[in-house]
Design a protein around this nucleic acid. Sequence first.
DNA 1: CTGAAAGCGCTAACAG
DNA 2: CTGTTAGCGCTTTCAG
Lengths: 363, 363
Amino acid sequence: MNRREPKKRATIRDVALRAGVSISTVSRVINHKDSSQMRDATRERVIDAMAALDYTPVKAARDLRRRRTHVMALLVPDISNPFFSLLARGVEAAGFKVGYSTLICDTNNSRDEERQYMSVLLRQNVDGVILVPVGRPDRASLDRLERSNIPVVTADRRVAGIPHVEADNAGGSRDLATCLVGLGYQRIAYLGGPQEVSTAEDRLQGFLEGLAAGGAAPPAVRRGDFTYDSGVSLGTEILRDRRLDAVVAGNDLMAIGVLHAAIAAGRRVPEDLGVAGFDDIQWAALARPRLTTVRVPFLEIGRSAARVLVARIQSYDGAVEPTRLPVSLVIGDSTCAQAKTRSGRPERARKRGDRSSKGSSGA
Amino acid sequence: MNRREPKKRATIRDVALRAGVSISTVSRVINHKDSSQMRDATRERVIDAMAALDYTPVKAARDLRRRRTHVMALLVPDISNPFFSLLARGVEAAGFKVGYSTLICDTNNSRDEERQYMSVLLRQNVDGVILVPVGRPDRASLDRLERSNIPVVTADRRVAGIPHVEADNAGGSRDLATCLVGLGYQRIAYLGGPQEVSTAEDRLQGFLEGLAAGGAAPPAVRRGDFTYDSGVSLGTEILRDRRLDAVVAGNDLMAIGVLHAAIAAGRRVPEDLGVAGFDDIQWAALARPRLTTVRVPFLEIGRSAARVLVARIQSYDGAVEPTRLPVSLVIGDSTCAQAKTRSGRPERARKRGDRSSKGSSGA
DNA sequence: CTGAAAGCGCTAACAG
DNA sequence: CTGTTAGCGCTTTCAG
């Protein structure tokens, strides 16, 4: 066994020859087909031959025959953002479990790159696509996929006419509002995300509902773009109104921006000002004071999206109902623990600290 | 054009038929082969036909013929850690540019899952593998890949006998040490990472060298596992020595742990205690005070690794020399700006703040 | 400049 | 229970 460099790869033929069976028998063993009613001796001989030859089936050949690549694509705006990378892990893990590989594509927050990817993916012959759209996605590309019988599922954000998996953003926001009102906050400002993102809208709506239900006055509303920087600048601006006793942001990144803006403006958090976010990203655990927020199960969203997609791949016509995953309140130190005027008992709330800040370093 | 559901996909045959040419001609157009010496009219007819039929080549068929999948795999310990996701972006982007797709595999910080993936990838017929090893990787799996002519490149961490792309960890650490000594710090503790990770060792060695060169006493050294939690606990422990005037950690996560431990212990940073890390992860930007650290170009490491891998794929025998990318000091507020005893001028240093904390939210 | 023909390695009827 | 056979869709000599 010391042939020189190239050493050609063994094929199914070689295995068949060596095991003294036909290639179909080998194929059956590989695919666990009828292998139950195969003589044990035969199967074993085949398995031995495969091992001896270090045989690995050529995926391209199988794909060609089965007309299915068992590859799905995940398009995310920015894989280096922790929600998306968690989501990606979920997708990958759930897909892997059912024999699917995941092609992760970073659309770099650009509608244009998103569009490009969609057509590249067509060429890659992926079996399906999980999309976290950047704003409103390109209809034509979407239709092109649909026409090619490549199912699409969106995750985290909704797009009209496409099955989706998302969190209960409105519900979480409502609970958060209720909780804050319960804690006695009265003059609240809300910093929402971009209007074209369903998630941002849901959170805003839920918050308004929650306040209304609690009998609180409607908040001052501003819109940012979900970045830390926009949290800082909007926060700085809105905090000029010194009567405000709380600022709630549409996501954690903006909330932390507000936090820093507040501190820079000489406000003490939470004594002078309550701050809350949404997402419960890992990063937030490193900021002080710890943020009151709503935990979104990104990993689970990913898993779920993968399952829904695979279901659609396997029977493309089956209508799949949208999935909405529950979220949970996380009370941090950025809001007063005790009520300011009357006492409130937030439901479904969880105290911070029962999660360790994980993450072994790469470097 | 209103056929019912299935609508079979057009093949190269259909295109040929419609364009009134042979399939080889179509193939030539697809692959831009000889297409320079093809009659323009012919080519155009083919292109039109392709468009009219909405033709997309079947990748499996091409792969089968060309015996190359144009897919590479990236194995990372934890994709939700920002350095790895940045690295992944780099790989993906650079690969994409040269026609490669990237299969991102999350080994979940487990040697075992890493091993499993390696054999799965064989079955996936990836053309090459970029590995960020979890500790010391499984030799057998590595050899198996090698035997199958699947080149492997490691990124960020070294493994004996395998081409790698990494940052200049020792150099950065040396510079950091020099800088701290220049700022007047004298009694320094060092919290390193796991011994089996080359990166951790390089950083420690570099730091020792830097201190020695600066004429400072060797530091107290402890070892953590690169997590935030280990930073907190080791920090708490080591800070019992109240003579310490600085703690340097092998990465940012641990450094932030130390930061929090110091604050909890009533030390003011940087007045009472200087703290520094390594990596310059995005998260760090959200912690206060801002960390003094060393910026590691993870995106570039990824890009570079992809390029090296593709080079190896294309000519498997070519010996590729290791790549070491430069790093740069980032001076934050966790160390005193002005020298404590004498003045020092750190070289290659960059003041914080010239990077915006990017990241649009997913939620 | 273009076409005909031979497979790449594998799966899936269909026969025994 | 196992073998024979016909392609999957494409690239690539080799002839014109």
